[in-house]
């Protein structure tokens, strides 16, 4: 082995000698080096995510101003804005928004709690896994929105059934991702916990749960999206209040501007909630930032 390592040492020495010579050579002829053609797209443009939407808005406004769009089908941006302000000041819009947000939030909260508790029970005990996992997988196979007729029969057409459907839409992705993360914990870390003499509780709190958080956040983001999706469907099928109802009514009276106001509000809901989850995720998983940098 020492014979081998001394041979390696000799090679390294002669190698570095050759290296010096090459460096001297390029030093003299440095100006002749031609830059390679760059294949990466280069630096990102400022405010890049806003450029496309702004362009669409400008085109829309220009086409409306030029009279190229049928105002009954696609009203001008300022008409939509005016309708929005009008609906807001007369109290219709705040009322409907409040109703919708309350539905989505209660459904989401129940779904979140249920998904996390079931995932913990299934991920931390074999009995829990046997009881829960198969059942949830079966539940997943049935599209939650397909349960609407049955739930109306059971719970009536009031708020309870809407909240229940949203909760089901939300709990499934949260359960699936959290459970997968909990059961996929690195066996090397399990061994480490044994060596360090951690109790079962310490093991769960210090290793299993922090290790499962990234998976949980994937599920959380899917759950947030799911709660809005469920809300839209429920409110447009059978509701007497809320944003979806507002839009459904507008469809009956041919008020495309009101429909657009509703869509904008839905869009804002989606953006705000997704950014909120991302912000929390960045804070909680701050140790990951150093990895991606």
């Amino acid at each position: 082995m020492s014979a081998v390592s001394s041979a390696v040492a000799a090679v390294t020495t002669s190698g570095s000698g050759a290296g010096t010579a090459v460096v001297a050579g390029t030093g003299e002829a440095g100006s002749q080096v031609r830059r390679r053609r760059r294949l990466s797209p280069g630096r990102r443009l400022p405010a890049a995510p806003l450029v496309g939407p702004a362009l669409v808005l400008v085109l829309w406004a220009a086409a409306s101003a030029a009279g190229r769009l049928d105002p009954a089908a696609v009203p001008a941006p300022w008409t939509v804005l005016r309708t929005g302000v009008h609906l807001w000041t007369d109290g219709t819009l705040p009322n409907d928004i409040l109703t919708s947000v309350r539905r989505a939030a209660s459904g989401f909260a129940i779904g979140l709690a249920g998904g996390v508790l079931l995932a913990l029970a299934a991920g931390l005990s074999r009995v829990g896994e046997a009881l829960i996992d198969g059942t949830v997988q079966l539940n997943r196979a049935i599209p939650a929105l397909g349960l609407i007729p049955l739930f109306i029969l059971w719970l009536g057409i009031g708020e309870t059934f809407k909240v229940a459907i949203i909760a089901i839409v939300v709990y499934i992705p949260i359960y699936l991702n959290t459970h997968a993360a909990l059961s996929g914990i690195d066996s090397r870390f399990v061994e480490l916990a044994e060596v360090q003499g951690l109790s079962r509780f310490q093991f769960v709190r210090q290793i299993v749960i922090p290790g499962a958080l990234p998976g949980f956040f994937v599920g959380l983001r899917l759950g947030v999206t799911g709660s809005w999706l469920g809300l839209v469907v429920l409110e447009q099928i059978n509701a007497t209040s809320g944003l979806g109802y507002l839009m459904f009514q507008a469809q009956n009276y041919g008020q495309s501007d009101v429909i657009l106001v509703g869509l904008v509000v839905y869009g804002i809901f989606g953006l705000v909630s997704d950014s909120a989850v991302r912000l929390i995720e960045r804070r909680v998983l701050s140790w990951r930032r150093t990895l991606s940098n």
Partner: peptide, 20 residues
């Protein structure tokens, strides 16, 4: 001591040393 350092990526160095 294992072949890999087996530090928990979500704990700072001192908290890793204090594990258990």
């Amino acid at each position: 001591v294992f072949q890999d350092s087996r530090l928990l990526p979500w704990r700072r160095v001192l908290d890793n040393v204090l594990l258990g």
